[in-house]
């Protein structure tokens, strides 16, 4: 309870001791509850990142820290053709985000506004694939698109007598696979965001003379934005790390960044170069994440306060 106090008493003896304040802070229940996850975060996330950072500065094909540091790995990334992998990964990830948003928005709108009591079952049906390993689902696409005997080709041949080629091994198919795998990550946060838009605010805007497009731009989009942002960010970041889609649906034609990294760590046995490539991906996604995170009010988004 706050109040605008009248006469306040002279302040208590001030504790100038910063350490004492810090000690008190350490003992508050919030920090105590946070500490297990924080410790885990340090060991499981910060530690590994520091190691990757360290490895990216050691000479090629070494497997430990021996005191000599170099930036040649970073020079390699630029001088050799790794930027092509980067371009593929970022291009595919960006395209995935755009496609997912366009596809997911109407469904989210339906879940948040139209389906009513059917929203929960529809949601459940849409969640199920998320819990089936993406490898299994991509294998399913592989079966659908398989040359000659695939479900798609087989059906067209059986029904119309048409011989179609295969759609496998093209950038479009990889994109389709990525959209397929990451759609739920756009869909659910967007639905959450849209369900935050109060119906009466939309009604009020309409009553004040706004048309459908103006309502969308002036009311719906700004309020739903946090959810849309989280969904897009999640999709983008996961898509940067995508590896199975290109491998299973794209064959050897397109080498994405995650695959380059895996390659350096396995066949090429060049950990430092692999680490440097990873650092590139980490820094770029990190900047994006921080930019978006700064705009979010998680209490409002999750707690609906």
């Amino acid at each position: 309870m706050t109040t605008t106090s009248g006469v306040s008493r002279p302040p208590e003896l001030r504790q100038p001791n910063v350490l004492r304040h810090f000690g008190q802070w350490l003992r508050n229940p919030g920090f105590i509850s946070a500490s297990p996850t924080l410790i885990f975060f340090l060991i499981g996330f910060v530690g590994p990142l520091i190691i990757v950072l360290g490895f990216s500065f050691v000479p090629e094909r070494t497997f430990g820290f021996h005191g000599d540091w170099t930036v040649e790995n970073y020079v390699h990334i630029i001088s050799e053709s790794y930027w092509i992998s980067f371009a593929w990964s970022f291009g595919l990830a960006a395209a995935t985000v755009v496609c997912c948003l366009l596809i997911a928005y109407p469904v989210s709108y339906g879940l948040a506004r139209i389906f009513g009591r059917w929203a929960a079952p529809v949601m459940l049906v849409l969640v199920i694939p998320l819990f089936v390993s993406e490898n299994v689902r991509l294998f399913g696409w592989y079966l659908v698109l398989l040359k000659g005997g695939g479900i798609l080709a087989g059906s067209t041949k059986f029904l119309f007598g048409l011989d179609t080629g295969t759609l496998l091994y093209s950038p479009g198919t990889i994109l389709m696979g990525m959209v397929y795998v990451y759609l739920p990550y756009t869909l659910f946060p967007t639905t959450l965001g849209l369900s935050l838009v109060p119906r009466d605010q939309m009604d009020a805007a309409s009553d004040l003379g706004a048309n459908r497009w103006q309502i969308f731009r002036e009311v719906e989009l700004p309020i739903a934005m946090p959810g849309i942002l989280i969904g897009s960010l999640l999709t983008f970041v996961l898509a940067i790390g995508a590896i199975s889609e290109a491998k299973l649906l794209g064959g050897a034609n397109i080498v994405v960044i995650a695959h380059s990294i895996l390659h350096e760590f396995t066949y090429a046995q060049n950990w430092p170069l692999g680490s440097a490539i990873s650092m590139f991906a980490i820094v770029i996604t990190g900047i994006l994440v921080i930019l978006v995170m700064r705009r979010l009010d998680l209490d409002r988004l999750l707690g609906r306060k």
Partner: peptide
């Protein structure tokens, strides 16, 4: 709990979700 540092904690703890998993796996391997 309402504690100093909560907002920072909220953002910090979410970072692993917004992180390419392949890179995370490899970092953990190292």
């Amino acid at each position: 709990y309402d504690w100093k540092g909560r907002i920072f904690y909220q953002r910090l703890i979410m970072l692993p979700i917004f992180f390419p998993q392949a890179v995370l796996g490899l970092a953990l391997l190292l």
